[in-house]
């Protein structure tokens, strides 16, 4: 038998919030993945909307490149509002 492909499951818990990754499951196609995701990941009102995507279509960054990828942000603290010291009267800005 050919193996059922793996799908990643994303659920929106309520309108106004993002879909969030909750896990994965095997299914023969996307429709079945949605039906199974409903049974597996939303038995207790966890969601109002489900996205499924076959895992093989996800491209992930390499954890080995973590430093090169993310370190440049470390020394740019001027991107945060707290970097700027203002007089007390206007500090709520």
């Amino acid at each position: 038998m050919k193996n059922w492909p793996l799908f990643e499951i994303f659920i929106r818990s309520r309108n106004g919030l993002d879909h969030k990754h909750v896990g994965s499951l095997h299914a023969s196609d996307a429709q079945m993945a949605i039906e199974n995701a409903r049974d597996v990941y939303s038995r207790r009102l966890e969601g109002v909307s489900i996205w499924v995507v076959e895992s093989k279509y996800i491209t992930a960054s390499d954890p080995g490149d973590k430093d090169a990828m993310f370190e440049p942000a470390v020394d740019k603290i001027y991107r945060h509002p707290t970097f700027y010291k203002l007089p007390k009267e206007v500090d709520h800005m």
Partner: peptide, 9 residues
């Protein structure tokens, strides 16, 4: 059942 679902897909 597993085979049939895959064949259908």
């Amino acid at each position: 059942v597993r085979d049939a679902a895959m064949a259908y897909a």
